[in-house]
Amino acid sequence: MKLAVDGTACLGSFGTGMEALLRGAPLPAVHADGRAVAADTSALKARLPARALRQIDHFSRMALLCALNALEDAGIPESPPRDTGIILVSGYGPATPTFEFQDSILAYGEILASPLAFSRSVQNIPAATLAVTLHLVGPCATVCRGDFPVADGLCIARQWLEEGRVERVLFGAVDEYSPLLARLTRLRVGMRASRAGREGLRAALPVSEGAVFFCLTADKDISAFAGKCRRGCIEDILFGRAGNIDPPDNTGVGTRGEVPVFLSGAVPRRLRALPGMRHVGHVYGNIPIAQAFDAISALSCGNGLPAGRALCLAHGTGGRTACLHVRQAENRGGAS
């Protein structure tokens, strides 16, 4: 079953919206520690009461603003139908509140640690915040892992839609900047790069933050695809161990220049030189949810895809890959 993408939205260190992402300007590292600028969520203040926002941290604000923009893009009101599920994926989850809670324990001990910091550090809180704010009562899940959080989360979305548990999934990928995680990321990337000649594509990128949201529905009728989905569809989600060079060979769309391949993750340097390979990480930075940015770029890049199709290939640890087969809507336009 394919996932129809009815609405999209993104924000990050590059700015807010597809126009900012597709502009393609390299993301500058504006801080001494190598990070890019923080994502701007100030637009939320015009859409929600200040009291509703007070206890919502930066990670959840990115998720909330991006979710609202995706619903708007899909033509769905801010209170979407109740049979909507939420899936939030992330490399690290709400890292800043987690470290704040740990600091609180170290400073004051277990008894006097901050209850508010604890509540913000609970992994599913950002997804629950979305559910409460948008009045959604469907299933609500968070997937948090270093390799392939986007592909794993989309598999769950596909399962929910296939089972008929929900009519729609609000799918979000979010990661926030944390100085500690950025330091560890740079250490890890440096170690891997020197060890195996990998990481060449993202090693020099500023550590960034951001969010991508999709409004997904089931697209069971292939023949009715044309014009049905506003943005396109995710035709398949494939996992493999592809010799670190090709996308999984069961995508059925060919490789090596026939279909553009958006690359992210621990990509071997030699992949960059192959025909059809694209890497737009310089726009969104070094971020665990890179594959979501690649997917939204592929869906929204107008006539930039020769056959309206692309593969978004993420390389994980141990040479494993996760590949999204993305197809633009036939009436595709440019950025929204």
Binding site: Q55, Y108, L112, A113, P115
Partner: peptide
């Protein structure tokens, strides 16, 4: 406009 979660935090803060 504080709520019950704030009350728990305030209790800890005062101590």
């Amino acid at each position: 406009g504080l709520d019950s979660l704030d009350a728990v935090e305030l209790t800890v803060l005062v101590q």
